[in-house]
């Protein structure tokens, strides 16, 4: 294992901003794994820390195959994590909207550029990332519909779902999108949580990366019998929306099965505890996502279902 500083920026009064990477093996740049890019992505750092430990063990046991290099970067944004702010401390920009970066540009463009120079050129790129809405997810792999990351390859992670995301204009500056522009097959891994550590979810994330690396012949590891992942276009998911704002009372959990007409959640009047709205399932489906904050706004897709 080789621990080294990937990128560094001097602070005025703070310690230097450092992006630290862990390298394993030598040879072809096979896979790069990136953890948090936002200040609240704690689970994402934690998943990477488990991988750092696991790869150290695999390396010591000679189970990283000859000719493969693996790079893990647990966080590309420790500055934001340390002050518990989602985006860049000074100007609130999102590093994951700055790729491929620009070395003569603004601070987060420079960080994106400095990091991207180190993490591009890999055959596969895996990013642990988060959704901007607070909620519990079914763990899944996300790929973009433009580009050449294939659903069948994404299935090698062994997670229950592969989501194909229709590219929106603002996606074009994300790491996932730009990896693909520069010939890296990119996969975004969504684990169960963001701001809290979920042991089971992170364990599953680590195993899924192991499954993938074993399938690609990068590590020696006996992959268990995997279920075939369900491939879903994000535009085909059924969103259940609130029409009222209020207290959100979920009646189901992510991963559960629901039937048509089943009550999924109540919205309560926050002063009078009356149920002002009940959300019902429009279809027979699995619960893919559920909002997990106590309050909700109107018009919010608090539940997403896959058929």
């Amino acid at each position: 294992m080789n621990k080294r500083i990937i990128y560094e920026l001097k602070g005025m009064y703070r310690d230097s901003f450092r992006v630290t990477g862990y390298e394993y093996g030598t040879g072809e740049k096979s896979v790069c794994i990136v953890g948090s890019s936002r200040g609240n992505e704690v689970q994402q750092v934690y998943c990477c820390s488990l991988l750092v430990k696991k790869f150290k063990q695999l390396e010591n046991e000679g189970r990283i195959k000859e000719g493969h290099k693996i790079l893990v970067i647990p966080s590309i944004n420790p500055y934001s994590m340390n002050i518990q702010k989602r985006f860049w401390p000074v100007d609130n920009t999102d590093i994951n909207r700055m790729f491929p970066g620009y070395d003569m540009g603004e601070t987060t463009q420079r960080i994106a550029d400095g990091v991207f120079k180190e993490i591009s050129g890999y055959k596969y790129g895996i990013q642990f990332t988060s959704f901007y809405m607070p909620g519990d997810f079914m763990p899944h792999v996300r790929i973009m519909d433009e580009g050449f990351s294939e659903a069948s390859v994404a299935g090698q992670f062994g997670l229950p779902y592969v989501i194909i995301r229709k590219v929106r204009p603002y996606d074009t500056a994300t790491l996932n999108y730009n990896w693909q522009v520069w010939d890296t097959q990119a996969f975004s891994l969504y684990t169960t949580t963001t701001t809290r550590i979920d042991q089971n979810g992170s364990g599953q994330a680590v195993l899924s990366v192991m499954n993938f690396l074993a399938a690609q012949g990068i590590i020696k590891y006996n992959v268990p019998q995997l279920l075939k992942a369900k491939v879903v276009n994000d535009t085909d998911m059924v969103s259940v929306r609130t029409s009222e704002s209020g207290i959100f009372e979920p009646l189901i959990k992510a991963g559960g099965k629901v039937t048509t007409g089943q009550p999924l959640a109540n919205i309560l009047n926050p002063y009078e505890a009356e149920v002002i709205e009940t959300l019902y399932s429009p279809v027979d489906a699995n619960v893919f996502f559920i909002h997990n904050e106590p309050l909700t706004y109107a018009n919010t897709a608090v539940i997403k279902l896959v058929q």
């Binding site: 920026l9 001097k10 005025m12 000074v90 540009g105 603004e106 601070t107 987060t108 463009q109 420079r110």
Partner: peptide, 8 residues
């Protein structure tokens, strides 16, 4: 007044 490296 406070700038990071790269700030405009």
């Amino acid at each position: 007044p406070v700038v990071d490296e790269g700030s405009l």
